[in-house]
Design a protein around this nucleic acid. Structure first.
Lengths: 218, 218
DNA sequence: CCACTCTGTGAACTGTGCTTCACATATCTC
DNA sequence: GAGATATGTGAAGCACAGTTCACAGAGTGG
């Protein structure tokens, strides 16, 4: 999370150099690549957050590169440089998978604005991809587990069979199954005396659930 | 959600009557029942929020009633009246599934405090059982669906194939599957021009997810 | 009109989450 | 120490979510 790396792909060395320079001066870690083919390796090595690519290049153009890129690195943002400011170019750029585009010729601040905007959006969307998210949400998407959390939030601590009776569930192994799940997700813990409690994270989730339930239309 | 209904089960008519009176005077809708057997029908009919039951009764005692009750109506709270204030009685009461207990003899305010506390906790825990909760959370517990939500939150509106390319997913039918799911849960909508957008509820969920992700430890 | 993209449906397959049952160890109580 | 209760494991089965594939009507552009 140090500095954002940006890869600039353009066969025109002058343009490429000047883009890299502009970005570098603005505090980004910018790297250039003179062809799409060469870029693929660089991307694999550097894992840039953002790629700026010219759509008109000898060999593989930007249009062809983008599907490949999106497929292997879905969370890399792509800004395409289109030849001239025509609606048509813009549309085709977006259609082939670009997240944004700028048209030649562009000013320094046009470039920087586009870059910053896309990095912002990237930060926003990548929040939703955080690894733990799936597990936590799947864990919460079960009535019994939420009931357990709610109960522990009220009673602070509880033993196994006590909890089972409290929930009115006949089969204790069923409760055990869900307790294990909650434990795996670090929402509850069990001390030496076998007493179950909410963890700090568990309490946070209880808060979140309360907030969520207040937002769900009845 | 009008007035909370409370069922009082006690074979002692004097005690039962006075409890019902105390509760009624405090604004609750209190009903009496003279045996556990008779109570079961009343419960089925009235769906009370809370049941107050004496554990020493001819016929089925409170102890025997509670597992039955919890099984059929897991979200009814049970307060047990124990004969005398002994630790032993309290423990066995809780062990057999009571949510709370009061010991004879008790004062008016002891009763009311216990009733209010349990109704509070009931309100809290029943939030977590809301029907829509399972569906929404299960819907959010999927990376692709969250990605779609995030994308729509950024771009406001998007067509099908545009979205598909943006996500970098090769198989469009896969995206379609998740879109359908999101639509079913009213998080996104589609107008006549086939443009997908977040619904109001979808936007709320995006907010919730953002909040959630900030609370999950990296 | 032909070709191509867009948008979507339905069926087959697969993995996994949840439940249930049978059984195994502790732990407590008398 | 014997019997009950508490706590937990592991395997079998079921249902369902997610993926993939084959296909099809609707639009669109040349």
């Amino acid at each position: 999370m140090a500095v954002e790396t940006i890869l600039v792909i353009d066969d025109d060395q002058d343009l490429r150099g000047s883009i890299v320079e502009i970005l570098s001066n603005d505090g980004f870690h910018a790297v250039g690549s003179e062809s799409a083919e060469a870029a693929l390796e660089t991307i694999r090595a550097l894992k840039p957050s953002l790629v700026i690519v010219d759509n008109m290049m000898p060999g593989m153009g930007g249009m062809a590169l983008m599907p490949l890129l999106k497929k292997d690195f879905p969370n890399i943002r792509i800004i395409m440089i289109t030849a001239f400011s025509t609606v048509e170019n813009a549309v085709t750029a977006m259609k082939s998978g670009a997240d944004d585009y700028i048209s030649k010729p562009f000013r320094r601040d046009e470039l920087l604005v586009a870059v910053r905007r896309n990095l912002e959006e990237l930060k926003f969307t990548s929040q939703f991809l955080e690894s733990g998210m799936d597990d936590i949400l799947a864990c919460l998407a079960n009535q019994i587990r939420r009931q357990i959390l709610a109960t522990l939030a009220c009673e602070k601590q509880m033993r196994f069979m006590n909890l089972t009776r409290h929930l009115g569930i006949a089969d204790h192994t069923k409760v055990n199954f869900h307790l294990k799940n909650l434990k795996m997700n670090n929402l509850i813990s069990q001390d030496r005396e076998k007493v179950y409690r909410l963890t700090a994270e568990g309490e946070k989730m209880v808060d979140c659930l309360q907030l969520l339930s207040s937002r769900i239309p009845s």
